[in-house]
Design a protein around this nucleic acid. Structure first.
Lengths: 267, 267
DNA sequence: AACTGTGATTTGTGATCACTAGAAAGGAGA
DNA sequence: TCTCCTTTCTAGTGATCACAAATCACAGTT
């Protein structure tokens, strides 16, 4: 006899609503909520708030992603499903799917034992990622430069000035702003497929950037960002591309040095 | 009272071995099978066949992938977990994970209703994919051209001559050989991260290539493949890159025309 | 005849259980 | 004390169950 689950330590019970309030993330339901009256234009004569409906594995995915990007998970450490599930207050199932998704995006890796780890970065792999980034982000930034709106450009200037005011010991903030600056330009290109690929690349490199910058301090990007914004102002798409490529290359040199020094110290 | 599963319609029972014979796919276990005797050098004085130990969701993934690439799944049609599970003779669980993985790779797409479909290709998306391919595969092919081994080059010649002998009505074979030719070059570059990204792009474009070639016939690539092989023979990496880029561009023109004609006929 | 509300069926999501393989810990013998 | 074996524990995989949202079918109403 097995009465349908009498006890459980989960915060979310069966009979509680599945829809979770969720952070400020975009809802995945497109437009097919609220179909109540007045047919084809599907208009309602009063306003209602759109319901958020996010799945648990989506939330687990975003939590893990955040932890990876921020450097909270140490490279080489393994992530166990059950521990993560306990931390999130869910069953192992959503975590399993989130991990699988991150493995597919190459942010995580499955060991031969089938455990999942955050892969450590080798200089070789880092070089490869940088070369891909130059090819891909170079192309996308050139496209974005040709289609950027005045609002987006203003926003980039805003981000740049904020970056210059960040204190030298707040490396994580700096990196976040840096990402925002780059992605504002890329977004302007209107290339969603490329966008996801670039995000995947940043996710692979991110944790190691965080670690190396945290130790070595940051002094990167200033010049190239200035060149980038100048190029955008005068609609010089080639200049924008060159600035992005140089930005990636120069940062790569610093990080690579750090990776190699770490390799020596580990040996 | 609920005796632990008396009946089941699955072909694979609990007590049957988990390890499935599997097709000619590479096993995911690295090297840590067979650790029976003679410790540290890990040598065995006789040869044994490596045990295949592939998870069910890996097999489901590869089956689905094959179905997508071959065009067996029509764009726009939805894939239900339970139907796929029944077809594979497993529980829905492995299928669920395989689908999630393919969605992460953008080969499939989740609708707002959370069903999974094979997305149909718009000219816009196709153009984007081609531009990404030119940037990425151009870079990789230049690298590969500089590092290709004589064996790999010989193999490429072999593939090319096989392609020329394929009858005009065997489009699928032609596409398979075409992929083999490209990937042999890319493999030589030794860029595993880029490799996976390129595979993902081919998986996105693949089904639609199949459909359009099947209807329109194929007359693509001959010239560019010749240029490519000539360039490789004389170690001209730039020529190889240009040939690949032209190959992608020219094929894109044909496919794009097909996509647009189809759009009109659908409307 | 078209639309709306209701019930039945389908389908995705999440929880729990069972099973197996590694990993770790503990103990016996040299 | 070290090594090897056994036992125990841990963790991933897959099956099954339960539930809710979506779709479908149908009937009743305007």
């Amino acid at each position: 006899m097995r009465g349908p689950r009498e006890v459980s330590s989960y915060g979310t019970r069966r009979d509680s609503p599945r829809a979770l309030p969720g952070g400020g993330r975009k809802p995945i339901n497109g437009d097919r909520t609220m179909r109540l009256a007045s047919k084809d234009p599907l208009k309602l004569d009063f306003q209602v708030a759109k319901l958020e409906r996010e799945t648990l594995h989506d939330r687990a995915y975003h939590e893990l992603r955040k932890a990876i990007m921020s450097g909270a998970i140490r490279p080489g450490s393994t992530i166990t499903i059950r521990a993560m599930a306990a931390a999130l207050g869910t069953s192992p199932m959503p975590v399993r799917e989130a991990l699988r998704r991150l493995v597919a995006e190459r942010a995580l890796e499955t060991l031969p034992t089938r455990s999942v780890t955050l892969p450590s970065m080798t200089p070789t792999r880092f070089d490869e990622i940088c070369r891909i980034r130059i090819a891909l982000e170079g192309m996308v930034s050139e496209t974005g430069a040709g289609r950027i709106t005045p609002e987006a450009l203003r926003r980039m200037h805003q981000i740049q000035s904020e970056m210059q005011r960040i204190k030298p010991n707040r490396a994580a903030e700096y990196l976040a702003k840096n990402q925002e600056l780059h992605f504002t330009l890329y977004e302007a290109a209107g290339m969603p497929v490329a966008m996801q690929m670039i995000e995947s690349l940043w996710l692979q490199a991110g944790p190691h950037l965080n670690l190396s910058i945290a130790e070595g301090g940051f002094s990167m990007g200033e010049d190239h960002h200035r060149e980038l914004l100048e190029g955008l102002s005068r609609h010089d798409v080639k200049a924008a591309r060159v600035a992005i490529e140089a930005d990636i290359s120069d940062a790569a040199i610093v990080i690579r040095k750090f990776l190699e020094s770490r390799k020596v110290s580990a040996a």
